[in-house]
Design a protein around this nucleic acid. Structure first.
Length: 735
DNA sequence: TGGAGGGGAGTTTTT
DNA sequence: CTCCCCTCCA
């Protein structure tokens, strides 16, 4: 045990060894929060304060959950299998599988991922003859999910106009459809579990009594429903007669809250502190990742946010390098400089995968990729399709889903005619109509179809029935292999020009099934606390796994490569060298964020996350012009750059560096293509012109419109925002 | 049934 | 500009 606590700093040690009370750990970037979390669990177990089954540890990502399990296994001589450590969704899935009856779900309920959910909504709108122009499926999906993330059902939704009334009706229809088909979406996993536990007292008591310690990772990312879920499980819901609850150990960093747009509520941290009467608030401020200059910059930046819980990172590693700031004439110029700088570092021996290019929006990767490709630097872009999201994989899974649950219309429609078997859109329309009339799944309605179409659909149904029979007693990997052959998927892709990779992926799916069985599905462990609960079948578990864990992002080739990703995707990662590009008003901070309340603060936190990814070297860059939506935009440097202590920055000017001289840095004006507007611009005020305004300060003209008395110009004033000004009235001084 | 071509949108995203 | 989605036509 002394081993366990060795090398913890005083704050970490204090957090790990707190008495069994509620605690809030404010864990700064790079302060060893995962270590504290796992050591806390190990300490509680090894000191005999609780058994492994009395802990519930929740994370947001599978990666974090796996990491925790791995570290725990390394610390303790216990089998972590069967411990309740996982993602919110994974744990809810587990609960719902064990108590599906009480939750009103079929035992083999399927989980819809976002793509499945979208197609389910599209299908619903079609069946109900709803104009999808008026009710865009994506928007409706977001509406539904946002409400469910708040813990709401259609009956509780606030309705403020006819449009919303209709959306709520459609949402209710959607819920009905999911129920009929035996499928649940991501938000439903949580909401259904929450409702199950709040309505079913014995069950609630059972779990409340069982979990003595609840640990939550990335607490700042919890949404309202997740917080309510935690309160319920912790026995802190105000229910009369609730047993003495679990101790909640919440770890988070309000400064790294960057997911408000998907429902995360930083306010949960304050609420938690208040509602749980938290006595133990511990700040982990010693940073083990970055050099001092980097931390100083991050601290100075984040100080500009209001209402923080407060935290200041420090390190004993020394100041390190200054932060290098580069201004390019264009986005291309910027990319060239970044890539050249990276090549220089690689020459000096920095490993490629210790170099990260971070950006605010995915579109920015294009110009960087182009430059990397041109210069022959290996790179890897994060954010593409993931394994289980690939077309061929989803097709194969749809067959498997139909074996498990024939009511799953989403799966049915996905493969009823893939590979093509002569079932046209017309037949499917008829089938859907018949199903709608008889209020039955497509699978059952198929029998009512007559004629040629009926025969074709009938053959498909028979195929599924045969597959079910043939695979009944096969081990999972063989089931997968069998359906890939018998469904005709393999044959189909064999005949396709670009089919080679898809075939490889299908083979990989068989491997995935095999390793899934090897790792977790081999012999499902009965939960000691609920020994009577049905054990999930390997197929059902595998399908849930596929939905809940879509796999790694497309990682490109395995070789050492420069890492490209959005700042969001970089959260939780660290690199020796980090480049943050596109530091321009409107891009970072993003223009759409200024509309949202406290949007600027979230952008600042995002910047804070970006900065704190760097261990040794940090580069920041911006460009004077940037191609955006096919047009050249004139940009002013990000206000965030001004918020950094200037003495930490080293301005690197391309022209002062011989290597960059006239090789590609052209004059800014010459580099800027003439836009269509420009011909109409009044003399002296052109797009790209720097101007000064009495009230708004310095800015740059980004667009002009009209002539004479009607002439207006759009000016980007940086921190003061983007303004349209009538030349007749506004006093603009060219600079 | 699939390919071509028009139209529209273009922050961030895990489960 | 470029990508994606939908529709329409052969």
């Amino acid at each position: 045990m002394s081993d366990l606590l060795a090398n913890l700093n005083p704050e970490q040690l204090q957090a790990v060894t707190l008495p069994p009370q509620h605690a809030l750990i404010l864990a700064g970037a790079g302060s060893g929060k995962t270590r504290v979390l796992t050591t806390r669990i190990a300490w509680l177990i090894s000191t005999g304060q609780m058994g492994p089954h009395a802990v519930l540890a929740v994370t947001f990502t599978n990666k974090a959950a796996k990491e925790m399990l791995a570290r725990l296994s390394a610390m303790l001589p216990i089998n972590t299998r069967g411990m309740w450590i996982g993602t919110f969704h994974g744990l809810c899935n587990r609960l719902l599988r064990a108590h599906h009856k009480e939750a009103g779900l079929p035992s083999l309920f399927q989980i819809l991922d976002s793509a499945d959910q979208l197609s389910a909504i599209k299908r619903l709108l079609k069946n109900l003859n709803v104009d999808d122009e008026k009710f865009p499926p994506r928007e409706l999906m977001h509406f539904i999910n946002a409400h469910k993330d708040q813990g709401l059902r259609p009956a509780q939704a606030e309705v403020w106009d006819d449009y919303t009334r209709r959306r709520v009706e459609l949402w209710a229809e959607y819920e009905g459809q999911c129920q009929r088909e035996g499928v649940v979406d991501f938000a439903e996993l949580l909401l259904r579990t929450y409702e199950l536990l709040s309505r079913n007292e014995p069950l609630r008591r059972h779990y409340q009594e069982r979990f003595r310690h609840i640990l939550v990772d990335e607490f700042q990312d919890t949404n309202r429903l997740q917080y309510a879920w935690l309160k319920l499980l912790a026995g802190h819901d105000g229910t009369a007669g609730a047993p003495q609850g679990a101790a909640v150990f919440a770890v988070g960093d309000d400064d790294q809250s960057i997911y408000a747009f998907r429902g995360a509520e930083v306010g949960n941290m304050r609420d938690f502190e208040r509602e749980f009467g938290v006595q133990n608030v511990i700040r982990l401020e010693q940073n083990y990742r970055s050099h001092g200059n980097i931390l100083d910059a991050a601290n100075a930046l984040i100080k500009n946010n209001q209402g923080r819980l407060g935290k200041n990172l420090w390190t004993d590693q020394g100041a390190g390098e200054p932060i290098r700031v580069f201004e390019g004439f264009s986005d291309l110029d910027e990319a060239r400089w970044i890539v050249d700088e990276a090549r220089e570092l690689i020459r000096e021996g920095v490993s490629r995968d210790q170099i990260a290019f971070l950006y605010r929006s995915n579109a920015q990767s294009r110009v960087l990729e182009h430059e990397l490709f041109t210069k022959g630097v290996a790179y890897k872009v994060y954010g593409g399709l993931r394994f289980f999201e690939r077309q061929e994989i989803k097709h194969a899974l749809a067959y498997l889903r139909l074996l498990a649950n024939p009511d799953d219309d989403t799966a049915f429609l996905r493969v009823v005619n893939f590979p093509t078997r002569g079932i046209g859109a017309r037949s499917l329309e008829n089938l859907q109509e018949a199903a709608h009339r008889s209020n039955s799944p497509l699978y059952n309605a198929a029998a009512s179809l007559t004629g040629k179409a009926g025969a074709a659909v009938g053959a498909f149904i028979r195929l599924i029935e045969e597959l079910r029979r043939e695979t009944e007693n096969l081990p999972l990997p063989e089931v997968v292999e069998h359906i890939i052959e018998r469904s005709g998927l393999r044959q189909h892709y064999l005949g396709e020009k670009e089919g080679q990779e898809r075939l490889e992926n299908l083979d990989e799916l068989i491997n995935a099934a095999a390793s899934f069985i090897a790792e977790e599905g081999a012999m499902p462990v009965p939960d000691p606390a609920t020994p009577d609960a049905p054990l999930p079948s390997p197929l059902a578990s595998f399908l849930a796994h596929a939905s809940l864990e879509a796999g790694d992002h497309q990682a490109g080739d395995g070789q050492e490569a420069v890492q490209l990703m959005t700042v969001h995707a970089a959260k939780g990662l660290e690199f020796d060298v980090v480049f943050i590009s596109g530091l321009e008003q409107g891009l970072f901070p993003h223009e759409n964020s200024v509309m949202e309340k406290s949007g600027e603060e979230e952008e600042r936190r995002l910047m804070y996350v970006a900065i704190t990814r760097a261990r040794q070297r940090l580069y920041m860059s911006h460009a004077q012009t940037r191609m955006l939506h096919g047009q050249t935009r004139y940009c002013v440097p990000s206000a965030f750059l001004d918020e950094l202590p200037q003495e930490l920055l080293l301005r690197v000017n391309a022209r002062s560096t011989p290597a960059y001289d006239n090789s590609y840095s052209r004059s800014p004006r010459a580099a800027a293509p003439v836009t269509a507007y420009e011909s109409a611009a009044p003399a002296g005020l052109r797009v790209g012109q720097n101007v000064s305004h009495a009230k708004f300060g310095q800015g740059v003209i980004v667009a002009t419109e009209g002539r004479g008395a009607d002439a207006r110009v759009q000016v980007n004033f940086g921190a003061a925002g983007m303004k349209w000004l009538a030349l007749e009235f506004a006093k603009l001084t060219p600079l």
